[in-house]
């Protein structure tokens, strides 16, 4: 056995030690506790910067007034505050436009996949038109141009705008998911004698669900966020309410923080719900 040079032994062991330390640092960084600590640290820093900034411009914090805008305690019990009313409108807006977006999206996806040349042309035309317009311009088009023609109110115009804008994104999700099902499934279904609608209903769509669900929820979260844009036509949703309160009270910091937190909670709940659904589907498949 060849003799190892003493300095080499030392080198090896020191290298060994650094590798060990490296693993330890990695483990620490990966641990949940560490992530939480880091998160708190970063958030703390941001808040601190904001606070000192606010102090520098002489901001007058009035957090104690915010709760009234959520739930107000009056002599005859609780009264729903303006922010909560805004949230209800936002939810209403989101649900309606999402349902409509899914319906339109499904139709577009089916048209696009259909063997009818005219069907796919119409679908592609619609998709390109909507996708290449800024959301704000689409809203103005629907509210100021289409609205007066068909006598649409602000709320209806907003639902329509959000639904149209998101329908093309939803259509893309449907199209990709349906195409992810192998061709052999189509062939087997048709060979058994199922009609095209039955193929979709019993064979393709059930298999597509697991491809659809995660991105579709992402789209729902996206929709909640883009719903804030309808505040430019003064639909009384969360963002509009926040702005109105600020113009009365000048509490811009507190209110915008609160509005942001409410959106965050809303979208987080949705994400958790989806994780739960995904797990459930995993079990079935």
């Amino acid at each position: 056995m060849p003799k190892t040079h003493p300095s080499l032994i030392k080198f090896q062991s020191s290298q060994h030690r650094t590798a060990d330390a490296g693993r330890w640092v990695r483990l620490m960084l990966d641990s949940r506790l560490m992530s939480i600590l880091l998160y708190v640290l970063i958030m703390g820093l941001i808040i601190r910067v904001l606070m000192t900034g606010a102090q520098a411009i002489g901001y007058n914090w009035q957090w104690y007034r915010v709760s009234d805008y959520i739930l107000e305690m009056t002599d005859d019990g609780f009264q729903v505050g303006e922010l909560l009313l805004g949230l209800v409108t936002t939810i209403d807006l989101t649900f309606r436009s999402f349902a409509l977006a899914v319906a339109i999206g499904l139709v577009i996806a089916l048209l696009q996949l259909s063997s009818l040349m005219i069907g796919s042309r119409i679908a592609i035309g619609f998709i390109e038109f909507v996708r290449n317009l800024p959301l704000l311009v689409l809203l103005y088009l629907i509210y100021y141009v289409v609205g007066p023609i068909f006598d649409l109110g602000r709320f209806t115009a907003s639902v329509l705008c959000l639904a149209v804008y998101h329908s093309v994104l939803v259509a893309e999700i449907f199209r990709a998911a349906i195409q992810a099902v192998p061709l052999g499934q189509w062939e087997a279904a048709r060979a058994v004698g199922l009609s095209t609608p039955q193929c979709y209903r019993y064979i393709l769509i059930p298999q597509s669900v697991k491809f659809i669900l995660p991105p579709l929820t992402g789209e729902a979260v996206h929709l909640i966020k883009s719903s804030a844009i309808v505040s430019v036509i003064a639909v009384a949703e969360l963002t509009t309410m926040g702005r109105n309160i600020i113009s009365d009270t000048y509490m811009s910091f507190e209110i915008w923080f609160t509005v942001a937190a409410i959106y965050l909670i809303f979208t987080l709940i949705l994400s958790i719900f989806v994780t739960f659904l995904e797990k459930k589907f995993e079990v079935i498949n």
Binding site: P182, G184, Q185, E187, A188, A189, R190, A191, V192, G193, L194, S195, I203, P206, Q207, I284, N285
Partner: peptide, 19 residues
């Protein structure tokens, strides 16, 4: 479809409905 009802087909890759 009326014709297909009378014709069974078995594929190389089985093509069973996995769900």
């Amino acid at each position: 479809r009326n014709v297909r009802m009378e014709i069974g087909m078995v594929f190389q890759q089985f093509n069973l409905f996995p769900h």
